[in-house]
Amino acid sequence: MSGIKEFRRNTPAMTAEAEAAARARLMTAIHEPQGARTPAAVRARRPGRRIMSSPRRALLGLAAAGALAGALVVVPSFFTESEQVYASQAVTIDRDGDWYAFYITDGDPDPAELEKAFRTVGLDNVTVELMPVSPQQRTPVVGFDKSDPDARMSSSLSDCGTRVEGCLTAFRVTADIKGPARFRLGRPARPGEKYASPADASWPGEALAGVKLQGRSVAEAVQVVRERGLKVAYELDWPLRDGGEGVRYESDVPASRVDPGWKVTAAETYNDGVIVLHVEPGAGATPPPGF
């Protein structure tokens, strides 16, 4: 039986003509005079905190002084190297071409301190919100909301471990963000605290790591969960009334409404002590009003 991996696998390969045409377009660009510009990325990145070279250091010194005095900080736009522009116990900020790189060194930072750091480098309209996430699934940025369509964020900085000692996570954003923007950063959830975004319970590090409950009966799944000292909550996945693809989720369903013979479709962590079992109601089950 064909699956998603096989879907449209017989699509014809690129023809020699198309390949030659695309390559020719690239070669034309390569031979244009501006193609010889020096890429910023070729500059060596040195590990450890860098010492700024003059006169940039002097300019940044002025910028920092401006921040202390409460004045608007104008960050020079002609940086040609990755340079440290801010450092505190919680965060180190580099300017790298058109980007700011952030290296977070505090596992549960104070949002106000991060916002202050952002303002110091000229990101005046950026707010920070910390979201409780599974301590095992921490990612630097849970969300990035912005009104500027050109603003970009990347959480794939590779030099977190070498750039700043004690770096936990790193990300970067385009330096010229216009309008308000909000970062939602993950912080480890406190014991019992509900996660802002659920994690699949079978993911590495989670309570049911490597255990597959999908397809098993509710009775079996509940036994597996309880053996681990965890509690169970239920969510029912009702098929759409029009027969279309997809389901509607009914949350906080009491155990009395869940037949032990129904099948589990997914298991998620709700917090460090509760597993939410997604259950497919059996044939003939009556959905509640609205489902």
Binding site: M14, A18, A21, A22, R25, L26, A29, I30, G35, R37, T38, P39, A40, A41, V42, R45, G97, D98, S156, L157, S158, D159
Partner: peptide
């Protein structure tokens, strides 16, 4: 796909300076 592949490599070439070469 013919067009998109050509445009992909043109765009990549023009913005190659943004590539983190440690990858």
């Amino acid at each position: 796909a013919d067009d998109i592949v050509a445009e992909t490599f043109l765009a990549a070439f023009r913005r190659r300076e943004t590539y983190d070469t440690s990858f």
